[in-house]
């Protein structure tokens, strides 16, 4: 009796773990792939080519990116120990500005898409966190290793850090923010980000030289 119970519970455990494993397998990678494919589809869409569709194109990309990026988590990690000292309003404003800055940076990058291939190499899931490893292959044959760090939010895996050739975006911004905040106030940091966004706007209007 005792034995059958043990066996049954073992079996149940086995199947739940296995079932869990199967249903979870590939989820973060598939979701990253889905987002990447959507973005590539937008930047390669012949109907959206050209300067007159730039705004529309950018809006569509933003939409896809917003569905996949956890700006709150990213902003929080970038501020590090400075996060706790901020009020809710300050945090909200910071997240907004930071999101704007990163989106513009990201848009600049993807707009330059020229047939690079994305190879999906591996994923690692532990509880609510995951890593997805991809490799970007340029036309010249250069390989750029990229790792996405993700956090599960409901059924969605949300990106909170991108590691390109070993360089973590979050760590890089965190170093910058902590260096700036060691010399200036939080308001000055916000002003700096605002200025950066404005500069970008101006540069984008001026067009980019090859």
């Amino acid at each position: 009796m005792k034995r059958t119970f043990l066996l049954a519970s073992l079996l149940i455990l086995y199947f739940t773990v296995l079932g869990y494993g199967i249903s979870m397998a590939g989820a973060p990678m598939d979701q990253i792939r889905e987002t990447t494919d959507k973005i590539i589809a937008i930047v390669t869409d012949p109907a959206l080519k050209g300067e007159q569709y730039k705004e529309q194109r950018r809006r569509l990309i933003r939409q896809v990116v917003d569905e996949r990026f956890d700006w709150y988590e990213m902003a929080k990690r970038c501020l590090g120990r400075h996060w706790r000292k901020r009020t809710e309003e300050e945090r909200a404003e910071f997240i907004n500005l930071f999101e704007e800055l990163l989106e513009r940076t990201y848009l600049d990058r993807v707009e330059g898409y020229s047939g690079e291939k994305v190879l999906y190499l591996a994923e690692k899931v532990r509880g609510r966190h995951a890593l997805v490893k991809v490799k970007i292959l340029t036309k010249e044959g250069t390989e750029i290793p990229v790792i996405y760090r993700l956090k599960k939010n409901g059924e969605r895996w949300m990106v909170y850090d991108i590691v390109i050739e070993g360089v973590s975006l979050v760590n890089n911004y965190r170093k910058q923010f902590s260096s700036i905040l060691s010399r200036s106030s939080f308001q000055e940091l916000l002003e700096k980000i605002r200025q950066k966004i404005k500069d970008k706007e101006r540069q984008n209007e001026g067009g980019k030289g090859e």
Partner: peptide, 28 residues
């Protein structure tokens, strides 16, 4: 051409950004 410009556009303190990127990159 254009790589350095993009890097600078994304950074709030390009010097600190470069120093950290160098550190992380070499470690990797």
């Amino acid at each position: 051409i254009g790589e350095y410009e993009k890097f600078k556009k994304a950074a709030l303190d390009p010097y600190v950004s470069m120093r950290d990127a160098y550190y992380q990159y070499r470690r990797e």
